[in-house]
Design a protein around this nucleic acid. Structure first.
Lengths: 233, 233
DNA sequence: CAGTGGTCTAGACCACGAT
DNA sequence: TCGTGGTCTAGACCACTGA
């Protein structure tokens, strides 16, 4: 009656997914507990645990102590978007990477930027604008503010030679951050840097990072029309 | 000399992250192997394994059998974006959910849609356009094609009463899919449905799902200007 | 308060792949 | 070839929380 032993956690996961797909276990329904499944599959409970825990992280199952495990009623797809260093993003496309800084000044930030950084008005900020190039063609515009109070070394760095993107990664550790994706009208100067009509819709990624309570940097990346972020489900 | 026992995998993970942040272990460098760390921390190797494996999944470490574990040279941030059912997305914002279908026809698909579905020209496709409302105001436009060869029941469903978004989730299982995010110029009819100026930039999510080799559905969600996808890093 | 998932342990075997 | 991470096991204790 019982099937051949299913004794790898991937195999358990596959079998569980199969039962969910064929509606043997329906959305919202409880499934047997770990000990029971371990007995059925002829494997250790830890193996079942690994399989079910991973499915819960993926949003397929809901698990609660004492209450047991049930199939998620309204699964939330989790789209995992990889955000690589820009140089690498370009080189992975087999294009030649290039970079040009077009603006650098220590200046007071506009309110919108101060809000992102939760910054007092007296925070010393370095403002950089740069273009990243793929095969000598504009690929993305980077508009960045760096908190000099957090890492004063940044003031001495020659950002016309190394991109802030890379320098910060290697020199400014952060503990956490947030990221936001939106569609924006290209600003005139960004359109000019990207060498396209000003009429386009730009995919924009805004990222702000912190080291403990201290803001490190905030950056706004504007990609030209046509750019897509892709992921598998 | 050795610290108090670090015997939860989260504690091990914290300590490893701390060492990376303070540059005790530098990017590109090898770190001690699992057995050694287990000895140092006074815990089982499985505990160290769980901590390091999770960090590798997060892109902080690179692990290879025999070659050992090293700190990732250029970490790829993985932004995890939750894509909930639209009804839930709206209700989670404490707004009242509403829905209106504005178009329904079985018709041949344009080339762009056939390409997404990898569809032959004779595939029977149901085309739906609908608006989802938050507090009676347009929230997102859904432009969907459903493969009737995959689930013929869809032809009988009254999609003016239940959104395809929800019906498919409950009735059309899929094994895999892909998702793409881009910024698009709003089409005139979409702008009208969203009740805004046609000049805006729309964040667009395109999702296609498959059941085995068979296409299930493809959908294009167009959000009005100002919409943001957020995530923590 | 009792049943469920969450985790840790000590030991074992194995797959991979750098050398 | 052989050291490293990947995984499985059997058993144990614990934290949470629903009944």
């Amino acid at each position: 009656m019982s099937p051949a032993a299913v004794n790898s956690w991937q195999a358990v996961q596959e079998e569980v997914l199969r039962r969910i797909r064929v509606r043997a276990w329906k959305p919202g329904e409880m499934i047997p507990n770990e000990a029971e499944l371990a007995r059925e599959f002829g494997c250790a409970r830890a193996t079942v645990n690994r399989a079910l825990r991973t499915l819960a992280e993926a949003g397929v199952l809901d698990r609660k102590r004492r209450a047991g495990t049930r199939v998620t009623l309204q699964p939330i797809s989790k789209a995992i978007i990889d955000i690589p260093v820009i140089r690498r993003e370009i080189e992975d496309r087999n294009q030649r990477y290039g970079y040009a800084m077009t603006f650098r000044r220590i200046e007071p930030a506009p309110l919108s930027v101060r809000a992102r950084l939760r910054a007092a008005s007296d925070m010393r900020l370095l403002h950089l604008i740069a273009v990243h190039l793929a095969d000598a063609r504009p690929y993305v515009v980077e508009d960045r503010w760096i908190n000099l109070d957090a890492g004063p070394k940044a003031e001495q760095v020659d950002f016309s030679r190394i991109s802030a993107n890379e320098w910060l990664l290697a020199n400014a550790p952060y503990t956490h951050g947030d990221l936001s994706i939106s569609a924006e009208h290209l600003r005139a100067e960004e359109a000019e840097l990207l060498d396209i009509d000003a009429s386009g819709a730009a995919l924009t990624i805004t990222r702000t990072t912190w080291n403990g309570a201290q803001a490190v940097t905030t950056v706004r990346l504007s990609y030209p029309p046509g750019y897509r972020l892709n992921t598998a489900l």
